[in-house]
């Protein structure tokens, strides 16, 4: 299998008063194409920092990160990615359809291809009836779905989701989970961070756990979690062990 994400010896340090804070410390992991990988860890563990390096927002202090073999510092590396940010927002003065259309154009789509992609995404998100309304009139859940739609408009091979259900009500969460499930069934590679362990357990087949800037576990869920154990128990145990070692 090809590697969708490859992180090798990656370190990120932030300048701080009197020195540096190490947000990521020589981490290594990879995600194969077609995998659905949960990226878990407590608050401040380095999940979003890692995602930001993958997207080129942050430069690595050491090591390297690649997406489909391309260095993440090149904008071409982002051609095959869809990204949904934590607490996503978009241009509220646009309609849902316009937001998707403009995002599509950024990926070089035009004409009928663009039109049909936008319509397909709107149908998948169940947003067709609200497509011509301004986003400023949308609920939080609808906004989240449109933002997810923007990250899917280019039919990406890798989808990176940062807390995709954060701040949503149960129905909103269920809708997003359904969409993720559908994307998994389509064979997309999905890499997502979440605090919702039950959500991760439902949709993921792989797991990466990060704590204090170090990768503590990486592998297939069915190999890591023993029969009779659930993800929540496993996660707590792993984090506590990592804390003792620290």
């Amino acid at each position: 299998m090809n590697k969708a994400i490859e992180i090798v010896d990656l370190s990120v340090k932030f300048p701080s008063r009197g020195g540096f804070v190490e947000a990521l410390s020589h981490i290594n992991f990879s995600v194969e194409t077609g995998q659905v990988c949960a990226f878990l860890g407590p608050n401040g563990a380095g999940k979003t920092t890692t995602i930001h390096v993958l997207l080129g927002f942050l430069a690595a202090t050491e090591g390297m990160a690649k997406i489909f073999g391309e260095d993440v510092r090149k904008s071409i590396a982002r051609q095959r990615i869809g990204y949904l940010a934590e607490h996503p927002d978009t241009y509220r003065f646009l309609t849902g359809r316009e937001a998707l259309s403009i995002t599509g154009r950024l990926f070089g789509m035009t004409g009928r291809t663009l039109q049909s992609n936008v319509n397909a995404i709107l149908a998948m998100l169940d947003m067709t009836s609200a497509a011509n309304r301004k986003i400023s009139t949308y609920s939080r859940g609808m906004m989240q779905r449109i933002c997810l739609g923007q990250s899917l408009i280019n039919n990406p091979d890798l989808i990176i989701l940062d807390e995709p259900t954060g701040g949503l009500d149960p129905i909103g969460r269920m809708n997003i989970r359904k969409i993720i499930g559908r994307l998994r069934d389509e064979g997309k590679t999905i890499f997502f961070s979440s605090h919702e362990l039950s959500e991760a357990e439902t949709v993921c087949d792989h797991l990466v756990i990060i704590s204090s800037g170090n990768i503590v576990v990486s592998g297939a869920i069915n190999k890591l979690i023993k029969p009779g154990e659930n993800l929540e128990k496993y996660f707590m145990k792993t984090i506590q062990t990592a804390a003792i070692h620290d």
Partner: peptide, 14 residues
């Protein structure tokens, strides 16, 4: 401020 910069820069745009 709105965080839209993250989804924008995640696109293939320099």
């Amino acid at each position: 401020n709105r965080g839209t910069i993250f989804s924008l820069l995640a696109k293939p745009i320099t």
